[in-house]
Amino acid sequence: MFEAKLQQGVIFKKIVDAIKDLVKSVNIDASTSGLSMQAMDSAHVALVSLKLNENGFKDYRCDRPITLGLSIENLSKILKCAGNDDTITLQTDEEEPSSLKFFFENQQASKISEFSLNLMSLDSESLGIPDTDYSSVIQMSSAEFSRICKELSSISETVEIETSKESVKFSVQGDIGAGSITVKNNQSDKDVDRVDLQIDQPVKLTFALRYLNMFNKAVSLSSTVSLNMSEENPLMVEYKIDDLGSLRFYLAPKISD
């Protein structure tokens, strides 16, 4: 028996919206500790990793670990039927479920929707992601980072991110010219302006902006984002989801020939 009830169902809707351009189908692994999901884009350049802890759910029960293979497109269609204020419950009684039940309830419990989504059997392509002690960590406004990526992608499809003790520089070079945005440490009390740099070792890495722009669809999940980098490592972009868990994106760097 598996049942997970999320009080703020809108969080689940936002998560699916954030990843639907990146991955087509995912395995959600349910265990006693919560839900986890890891999937790569078709080019195996980017990876999304979701972890939702059981204690973040209103109700959570998972008698034995199960894997739920979902088509993101079909999941999106069902979630469109959930109101932003609804609770969302996932449920199945079977051990090897062929479908997953969804219940959407409004606040007054005066409207209850029930859907059943057919499950897919997907081979698990999971990668071993080592716990990395990143040498450069940037915490900043997710809206601000999203804006920087959007603005720079009009000049080039590739951005170089260079950190130093007191600032991070985003540089682009394209046919029309070049540009850079430098953001300094800023302990402002205004969320949108605050920038927190923890630079043990400076890094200079290059990434494809189109992936960063896809990651930034998660901006509605958290007002802050953290960029985690070490030389010769994929970038890890993390959106923490209050009291529930985190949505992480990994992106392999580009190397200049």
Partner: peptide, 14 residues
């Protein structure tokens, strides 16, 4: 021009 690396250059398949 820059070459895009793959995640399998960094993470091993489980």
């Amino acid at each position: 021009l820059a070459t895009q690396l793959l995640l399998s250059n960094f993470f091993n398949e489980m």
